Structure formats: C-alpha cells, structure tokens
Simulated scan of single mutants.
Amino acid sequence: MTGHDELRCMLMRGGTSKGAYFLAGDLPADPAARDDLLLRVMGSPDPRQIDGMGGAHPLTSKVAVVSASEHPEADVDYLFLQVGVDAPEVSDRQNCGNLLAGVGPFAVERGLVPAGEAETSVRIRMVNSDDLATATFPTPGGRVDYTGDAEISGVPGTAAAVVIEFPPGGSPLLPTGNVRDTIAGTEVTCVDNGMPTVLLAASDLKITGYEAPKDLEEDLALADRLREIRLTAGRLMGLGDVEHTTVPKMTLLAPPRDGGAVTTRTFIPVRCHTSIGVLGAASVGAGLRIEGAVGHDLARLPDGDRLRIEHPTGFLDIETSVADGAEGARPVARRTAVVRTARKIFDGTVFPRSAGTAPVRHAQGENG
C-alpha cells in the first residue's frame, strides 16, 4: 500500500472516456476509505473538479481498479467506479465498456499479465456485474504498442485496435420478461446485454432524436419524463431504487441519417452522452434485433452481425447476434464484439488533496 498523500496512478483514455487506473493493492481495502480517497484524487465534489484529475464531466471522472483474478476463466479483475463530479458520490452500480479498453494494456504495463511477442489477449472479469470479456491488442516485442490506424468516432487521430469480445452473459436479455413495456404512457424495451438500457423511440417523446446533446439537456420537460420512466424501469428490471445511480441508461432512437442502423441519444442519467458507451451500444444492438422491440421497425438492419450505431459525434461499430430462446423462451444474446482503442496518457504519482469533511455517498451494487 502506498501512502495516501501520494498514489501510483496511470491516466488512460479508454474508448471515448478517460479515467484513472489503479492497482487494487495501491488503494485502501475498505470501500469507504477508498471512495473518500478517490473523490480527493478526482477533485470532487466540484463542478469544475479544479483541484483534481477529473475533467468536469462524467465521461472523464472515472476510475478502473485492476487486480489479479482468482476466477478460473479470467486473468484480471476490473472494478469500475463512477466518481461524481459535483456530488460526493462513488458508484459501482454499473460497468464501463470504454475504460474496459484500457484494462488489458494496463494489466500488461503493471506486470499482471505477460506480454506476447506480437499480440496479447487478456481475459477480464468485470467485477461490477461478474461478466467476462477478452481484450486483444498488439504487443510487438513484448511491449504494449498504442499506435495504429484504428479510428473511433469522438477521439482525434488513430491508435492501435483493441478487439473486445464478450461471451453470452448469464443475465436475461429482456430483464422484465417482456419485449415491450409501457411506462408513463410510453412504450419501451428494457434490455441488458452488458449494460441495463431502456430503449425509447425519440418521436414518442416529441423530439426528433437528432438534437445536440446540450439542447436535450436543457429540455426540462424531457428530463422530467425520462426520470419518471427510468425510476420505474429500474424497479421492473430488478435494479431496485435507481434514484442515485446511473443505470439503467436511457437511449432515444431515431432512423439513421448517415448510413448506419440507427441514430441514438443516450442519457447517463441526466447528461446526454456525446457518443455512446460500448456496453450500452451492445444492449442497443441486441435490442434492435429482437422482433417487436422498440427500435426494431425504425432501424435499418444490415445483413451480417455488424451494426453501425450512430451517435452525436459519429458512430460505433458493434457485432452482435441474437438467437431465439429454446421452446419459445425469450431471445438470448449469442455474440458481441467491438473494436475500440486506448492510450496511456501518463504513468506516475498523483497527490490527492487533503482529507476534508464532505460526506461520501457510496452507491453499492450487488457485487460490491
């Protein structure tokens, strides 16, 4: 354990998010002490996060905690923590598929997994949900190479491809048991293919689905309606009271405009995502393939497994397939894979601000 006045840390961009990566052994074992320390590292609570590493937005106020895994099908464990920006809150209620892209390279950098001579595959257990993923990335000469020609929307330039494949999860694809539910007079599809997500047709909410995120965030009537739907959907999906969590995600769907399968606007939960999360896109992609689900009819579904999910700053390509359940049971996800990129920004020592008196609110998940 390092001293809490200084802490070993690697700042990485993973997909379209940015976060601080830590070895579990470098953080306090007690969750309350850990969360207090991370709030001070990130500079929360403060809408500017001026006194820490956070970037004043949920997408840049994230933490990955990585350790060697005892799971027989995993090399490392990855715990994702969402650190509140202007609230003293740390949540482990969800995964983050974007920071997941950096977990494999980080594990190699920290010596948890040996590097291959050309490429390395790291098997990852996502502690938040107990799901598994395998990340494969280039390691020429036994060193992580972050350079390459893979390009993802929302990130300038190019980088090495990180191919992430998800085996079918154990959770029901349709957690309410229904292809459609009606909540607050609005038809929705509740789907979970790695991220609890509620699919809604934008037109049912009296918007086009092509608005800029900022404009949607300023629509107070829309915010109130989404909140009402989300709170009810959370209970129906078995998530309990989601008042102080960021799940389920709320994804508004509209017909594609740029050659993709569908256009999306996703709320997390009150900020509108400038792109879309990897696991959220996995849930959207699976949901679109279910006949009768919200979005199935308005989407342009191509042949093959690959779907292009349009979002405010471009697109995300994801490969997903869904199979009918046995003997008339509900559909099940069969395969999900995505190409992302990651980059090491700095590796060094972070100095948390001094301990204060702000209370810590820990939103604990089932596996927390």
Rank of each mutant, 00 (worst) to 15 (best):
V108R: 04
L174V: 11
L279I: 03
I318L: 15
A161S: 14
I164P: 01
A333Q: 02
A87Q: 12
A161P: 10
L307P: 14
A233N: 13
L222C: 05
M126K: 04
V294I: 15
Y146T: 02
V85A: 06
M250W: 01
S91R: 14
V66I: 13
E151P: 01
E217A: 08
A281D: 02
A160D: 03
D149W: 09
L174Y: 06
A358W: 11
P172G: 02
A74E: 00
G154L: 09
A161G: 14
L252S: 04
A87M: 10
N128V: 14
H57D: 14
E243Q: 14
I318V: 15
G314A: 06
P47D: 03
I290Q: 10
D347Q: 02
V144M: 01
A87P: 09
E187M: 09
V350L: 06
R361I: 13
A150E: 04
G43R: 05
N98Y: 07
D145Y: 09
A329N: 13
L220Y: 03
G238S: 08
R257H: 14
R93W: 13
T274R: 09
E187T: 06
G234N: 11
G111H: 07
P175K: 01
E228F: 00
R361E: 14
A20L: 05
E165W: 01
V198F: 12
G314K: 03
G142D: 04
S69F: 12
A281V: 02
E165V: 05
G185I: 11
D192I: 10
E291K: 15
S171W: 11
L38A: 04
D75V: 06
I164T: 07
G141A: 08
V83M: 11
G185C: 10
V191E: 07
M1I: 10
G14A: 13
G280L: 00
C190I: 05
G104S: 04
L316F: 01
A24R: 02
S275A: 15
G259V: 12
E89D: 03
T60L: 01
L239Y: 06
P168G: 08
G348S: 08
L7Q: 00
P47A: 12
P58R: 07
K249A: 13
A261N: 08
N95Q: 11
P88E: 10
G295S: 12
P269A: 08
A150G: 05
A358P: 09
P156H: 14
G292L: 09
G304H: 07
P45N: 04
R330V: 09
D145V: 11
I345A: 04
L316G: 09
T251S: 11
M237V: 10
G287Q: 09
A323K: 12
P105K: 13
G325F: 11
G157M: 04
M250S: 09
I229M: 08
A363H: 09
R225V: 08
P58Y: 03
S275G: 13
L220N: 04
F137L: 00
T189K: 11
P255I: 00
C272I: 00
K18W: 00
A323R: 12
D241E: 08
H273W: 08
K206I: 01
T158R: 15
G19L: 07
G43C: 05
E211Y: 05
L253F: 10
R180M: 15
F80I: 00
G287K: 07
I207C: 08
G157E: 13
